[in-house]
Computed example of a mutant assay.
Amino acid sequence: MTPDQLKVLNDETDFYGKKYWLDHQSQDLDFPDIHSRARNDLTERNLHWLKTCLKYCLPPAKILELGCSHGSFVALLSQAGYDASGVEMSPWVVEFGQKTFGVPISIGPVEYLDIPPGSLDAIALMDVLEHFSDPVATMTHCLKLLKPEGMLLIQTPQFTEGMNYAELVETNGAFLEQLKSDEHLYLFTKSSVTFLFQQLGAEYIQFEPAIFGHYDMFCVVSRVPLQANKPEQIDATLLSSPNGRLTLALLDLRARELDLAEKFSESEIDRSARFVQIQTLTEMVKNSQATLKETEANLRALFARKAFRYWFKVSNWIELKELAKRIGF
């Protein structure tokens, strides 16, 4: 699709119109629709993205999110103190985001917006890069909009080197759901996305943990070396404003949630291992009991013989006498 083809002129019929966010998401892809996502995204993926954004770019930096959907990440960025705005293709989605979160969202494509070159500190593209019909042209334009030290914050499906379609089908691999020929026009490996931006003059790329690491990659791209902010710098920036304090509290809660989830996972692994041990020990006890019963049966058969009983009376075999007591002789 060209930028003209990506434009939504009729929200009822065009591909990225209203139906894409409602019927297509829930019925075709089995994803939550935009109403559910507007609530749920805030507490997980938005906070994950914000944490990385703060690592490399502090408020009040100017950030534009391409493909901002319902606008929750733009709202969270604004809450943290950024000068944030979004871009979407559908007029219906733009209105939805503006009403839902009260944030500035423009109708794209980004190439048609009146944004001065060199005016942005960062551009975020969350699950967007793979949709571009000409990623080279769009990323070239985006880099022109950034300040010299500006950065791109990108989440996109990660096609793994050596991935095989037949094997994905056979194993029902998680990446299968990313193979959408009418939407995901370009899929990248880490090496190919690095090569793409190197060719565009943005040779510095830092891969960060993706929230959905089993099929996504998450990276920060810049034309200059990336400098990570220290945790105390981030805390001080957020603590300098009331809204920033609330944002820091949300990040703290998210960190506690992830820590508890990790501890729960570890406890489940330990519980599973202990259960296996219990099953093994139980089986050993059962086998020992069976062996003991067999031994007792053999002893009873021996004591049934007169010659053995006579020999038993005159012998001083202490262990045998103890066994005899156990079986009632």
Rank of each mutant, 00 (worst) to 15 (best):
P225K: 11
S106R: 07
G201Q: 12
L153H: 03
A255E: 13
G328T: 13
H70T: 09
E170I: 10
P148R: 14
C53K: 05
K286T: 14
L248D: 01
T13A: 05
I211W: 05
E319P: 09
T280Y: 01
R45A: 07
V314A: 12
R300C: 11
L250P: 01
S272Q: 12
Y16R: 02
R274H: 02
S192W: 08
S267M: 04
F308I: 13
E149P: 00
S106D: 07
F329V: 14
T194C: 06
I107M: 06
A174C: 02
E88L: 00
A84S: 08
K62P: 06
R45K: 09
L179A: 10
P148A: 12
C57P: 00
E161H: 09
K51L: 12
I318S: 13
A202E: 04
A38I: 00
F159S: 02
C142G: 06
T140E: 15
N316Q: 14
E283M: 09
L299F: 10
F96G: 05
L64W: 00
A273C: 02
Y215V: 05
G162V: 10
E296G: 07
M217F: 03
L176E: 09
V221I: 12
E167Q: 15
R274K: 13
S191A: 15
Y16D: 00
P209Q: 09
D121F: 09
D30V: 04
G173P: 08
F212Q: 11
S90N: 03
D235P: 00
S119I: 07
P209A: 03
G102E: 02
L246V: 08
Q79W: 00
S315P: 08
L246A: 08
M217G: 01
K263W: 01
P116K: 15
G86T: 05
L129R: 01
K190L: 10
L200S: 06
R326Q: 15
P135L: 10
D11I: 02
D134C: 09
T194D: 11
A38Y: 04
L320P: 02
F101V: 00
S119H: 11
K144L: 07
L323F: 11
F212Y: 11
S90Y: 05
E294W: 08
Y16W: 15
R309C: 05
I318F: 12
S36G: 01
F96K: 04
L320V: 14
M151Q: 11
A304S: 15
R309L: 07
F197W: 04
Q158I: 05
K144V: 04
